[in-house]
Structures are given as C-alpha cells and as structure tokens.
Design a protein around this nucleic acid. Sequence first.
DNA 1: ACATGATGTGTAACCGGTTACAGGTCGAAT
DNA 2: ATTCGACCTGTAACCGGTTACACATCATGT
Lengths: 326, 326
Amino acid sequence: MTTIKDVAHHAEVSVATVSRVINRNGYVNEDTRKKVEAAVEELNYKPNSVARSLFKKQSKTIGIIVPDITNPYFPELVRGVEDYLIKKGFTTILCNSDEDPEKERLYLDVMKQKYVDGVIIVSNMAEREFIDECDIPMVALDRNVHQEMPAFVIDNRDGGRVATEHLFDVGCKRVAHIKGPDQVINSEERYEGYIEVVNGRDWFQDSFVVSGNFEQKQAAQVTKQLLNKHPEIDGIFAGNDAMAVGVLKAAESLNLKVPEDLAIIGFDGIDLTEMTSPELTTLSQPIYQMSRDAAKALITLIEGKTIKQKENLFPLQLLKRQSTKR
Amino acid sequence: MTTIKDVAHHAEVSVATVSRVINRNGYVNEDTRKKVEAAVEELNYKPNSVARSLFKKQSKTIGIIVPDITNPYFPELVRGVEDYLIKKGFTTILCNSDEDPEKERLYLDVMKQKYVDGVIIVSNMAEREFIDECDIPMVALDRNVHQEMPAFVIDNRDGGRVATEHLFDVGCKRVAHIKGPDQVINSEERYEGYIEVVNGRDWFQDSFVVSGNFEQKQAAQVTKQLLNKHPEIDGIFAGNDAMAVGVLKAAESLNLKVPEDLAIIGFDGIDLTEMTSPELTTLSQPIYQMSRDAAKALITLIEGKTIKQKENLFPLQLLKRQSTKR
DNA sequence: ACATGATGTGTAACCGGTTACAGGTCGAAT
DNA sequence: ATTCGACCTGTAACCGGTTACACATCATGT
C-alpha cells in the first residue's frame, strides 16, 4: 500500500501539499499540482480512508437496519438506498435485526464505533432514549420510529381502508382480514383501516380477523380455518402480499375459485404478486422512490442541515388485477 | 465520545494499561484491572474502531458483491453471510454490481481503501490481474472466479442434466430450454447440461433453446413464441426459477395445462416456486449453507490460514412438485 | 520605498487507538 | 548476596491521513 509519504517523496514535496492536491483545497502552484498528480498516477496511490476517517470523524459509510433482507419487501428498499448512496460516495452496511431490539442496539453500537455517518432504520421498537443518545443522523423508513425522526412511509391506515373498500366495490358482502404481527405498527394500522370500514356492519365479528404473521404458510393455514368457520366470507384483505399468496393457496386447496368465490387483495406491491395466477390485486408502495428519498434526506442530515418535514407520506397505488376482478 | 485517555485519566493509569485491560493482553494487576473496568463502565467507554483499524490494518468489516440484491436468489445468500459474520464480530458491506466489471472494480477499490478484511464475490467477470493485485482475502460464491480462489458452488452442468432427464422421466418427448444470459457462466453450464442430454436426438434443433435472460417477463414472451413455433414441445427446463414462472404464465395464456400439456422445471429452489400454482418442480440449492460456509472460509483466509480445497461443490436437490407430476 | 494581501509550501500537532521498549518491584534459586 | 525471570506500568513512536500556523515570495497600490 503506497502512502501519502511515498507520493510526497516521489514528487519532492511535503505531505501537506499532496493532501492539498488530492483534496483540491488550499493554494497549490499549477506546476506542483502536476508533479503531484503524476506521482499519484505513477504510484497508483489511493488515499487511506481509515486514516482520513479518524481525523475527520466520519467514514463515508452509512448503515441500514432492516428486519430481514430475506423478506421480499426489503431488497428493493435496500437497493434504493444503496444505489443513491454509492453515487454520493457512501458505502452501505447491511444489518438484519429480526425485529429484535437487542440486535438493533448491538448494531447501532457497532456502527457508532465505526464512525458511521448515518443510519436508515426500519423499526418500531424505538427505545427513544437509546436512539437519542446515539447521536447519529438517522431517518426512519417504512415505519415511524419517533416524532422527531424524519420518516418515509405510506399511510397504512388509509391503505387498509382503500383495500377493504375495494373488495366491497367489486361486490363482496363479507370481508375478512388476515393480520400481520401485533408488534409491527404497520400491520396494526392496516388492521385499523380495515376495522374502520367494517365496524358496525351487522355481520362483523372479531373472528373475521385472524393473524398470519406476515408469512405465507401461516396465512394459508389460518385462512383454511377461517373459511371453514365462516364459509360466507367472499373477500379477504391480507396485510401483506406474502400472506395474500397464502390465502390464494388456501382457496385453491378448498376448491374455491378466485375471484369468483373469493376475492383477494394484498398489500405492498412486490413483484411476487404478478407471479401468481390469478395475479393478485394489491396496494403498491413506491418502494424504490421512498428509499431513495430517505437516503437523500439522510445525506441532508449528515451535511448538517435540518429537515423540516418530519413525516413524508408516499402515495399508494391500487393495482387492480385478476384476484378481485368480478 | 469518550476516549481511552478519558478512561486512563479517570482510572489514574496510563492509556497503555487501559488498552491492555480491554484487549486482555500483557500483564495487568488484578486491582488495576478492576479500577479500569470500573472506569470503562462508568464512562460507558467503547473503543473507537477506526483508530484501531488504522493501526492494525484491518477493519472487522467484509464486503459482499452480488449482481443485484433485488434478484430473489441473493437475499438468502447475503443473509447467510451476514448471520455468520456478525457472530464473528464482522460487519458486512453490501454492493450491487449489476454484473458490471466496472462497478466491481470500483467497489473493490473503495473496500481496499477502507481496509476491508475480506470480500465475498458473486461474479464471473474475473479480471484475473485486477483481482490478484487487490491482495485481499477473497472467496467466490455461486460462481467460480478463477482457479486459485476458493469457490462455493453447485455443479450447474450436472444440474442441467438432472433437470432435463427428470422431464424425460416423467414422460416428456420434446424438451426445450429457456436459457439465462450468455455472459453468466452458470446459465451457460446449465445449458450445456441440457445439451448433453438432448444432443443427437433426432427431433432436436437449435431452435429448442431460447434466451430468457433470467427474467420472468422475457421468459414468458419467448416461451410463447417458442410454443407457437414448436407446438410439439411438452416439457421446458428453465434456467432459473423466475423464468420458470414466466413459462408457467405463458402456458396459462396459451391455455396449456401444466403439467398435463407442458411440464416445467426451474432451477435454484427459491421460495417463489412454492407460491405458484401448480407449484414448480425445481433443483434446489442449499443457499444458506453454501453462503455460511463461504463466510467461514473467508474468516479462515483472514486469519492467515490457507484453504486447500479450492472448489467446494454443494449437492442439488430435486424437488418434485406439481409442475412435473404426471 | 513600503505596506498589503494573495499565493505557495513545509513543519508539526492531531485524530484514538496499539505496542515496543525501558524501567521498576519482588520472590525464588544459586 | 546475587542473579534471574515473572509481573506490572508508563513513555513515546506509530498507523496515514488533515490542517493550523509560520514563513516566504511576489504583484499591487500608495
């Protein structure tokens, strides 16, 4: 590894001058600059960013904490972030939290020690004090973490409402909901949207809502039980797309036709929904833009500016497809 | 941020002693140790890993370069790596190369500057000289990069053979192949496996092979053309699972029954294959284990040991499902 | 002729750790 | 009594950059 000293020696100047040349600051004589640049070229010198980080107290690295990259919703999110940041000269550290506050804490600690410049976090475990004492620029993505942290999210409650109403619009009479995990705020809000629409209807009872844990398999299983108990159900709003696939599978195994006997709508708009047959109607999130904007905001924070707009809501798009076509 | 000096001052010892305590090396008197530990506790001191990296010339960070995290094959791969490495105290930098040698080079440069301890790479663009001059421990995953680099892969050619044979086993007479991108070695090898089986059969012609670029949509499109041209085809081996889904879609739009009129087999064994109906037969890779073993090997290299076994082949599993059930 | 400010360059301190080395104590062996 | 090695601790150099500051030169205006 060639160092700045090697370059300085080779160009017959001091290290300060070399530093000035490569950072383009301070005064440097044109001829000197050329000599240095030649030396840099010849020795194939690349400045050591660790040394630079130590002095500057910033690393040109950011962290992104997601629950699980294996969940098909997150890769696109991560990609949006990474794509934007690499252009800005930042590299991205990936962390899978499994929704475990302990792991989040650990990752945050490690990142702090590495002088990570900022963090994008998908979480609602928000231990407020801990986050605050971290003292790193942070933005929330997909879920609100707390009031002061800029968040890039969609309106889950409204989405829940729209999804449920869509099922009634296409003629459903009895609409059930497969809910995500209780501790995830998004699934809670989607559920609330659903409730807003169905509450007060004479047929509605709590047993029209079952928990699928955002997982396909579990959703398939509980759907079967649900439909056995309530054969009158003719529409299901699943809290995410993976569960919608599960519902589809369940319908199939019960010999129900989709959408004729049972209409299905998912949530998120991941590619998966185009792969099934019938293709799934879903509420699509602008995942890539959301994550890019979050990354953009993080850079803004890192540059020391503030962000006035705390909550940034992105529009959902209702993708009407075969699973609700009547 | 509290530094080692603060701790030293607080415990009334020198920084050297503090360093010895936190690294558990050298001699330290029991009482001194306790004093220091108390100070560390009280000040909530966390050593600055950038400073440490600078001196030690290693960063407890590794990089993983994948073509595109958005491709459903890779998240699990990345997860396998990350899970293992975090346990060993390493963090993971994620890079999306888009199969672009230029980007790979760029990422590699950046990582070198950051004293990344090692790299796991999914690529076959292998500019041998460049990789060599990198002088960073590296292991290849999913594809061989070059002879000397330890690789964790499956036998694609054999897989291609097994997949094709399976279609004949279930009674297919005319088997076509949807091939992945030409420049990806894996798709080339799977194709070769297919050719080995069909070559010499009187009905076989080059037009039984079309290119789907590993993408669902393109595969659907070319499959339609293929089946219009060769209605006698009754089995299709798709070079990956996404394309198998595309084939399934195409069959559907042509009103062909799967598996009765057309049997389909994919490759990779991603979760997606269980989400379609009929569920897709596929050759399943032990993705998680493969990636974990690759991570393990990388650590071995980082510790300065060598790895005798260069090519590590993992077994493929034929998952027989509805799409080939006759 | 001289003050002034822009330009150009080098020295050395600094970022926050690690560790070689020196120097000191102390108990046991000779 | 002396030597020796184990134990304990501090000083300072070092990792590879950045930058404050000092100093020097030179063109310009008065």
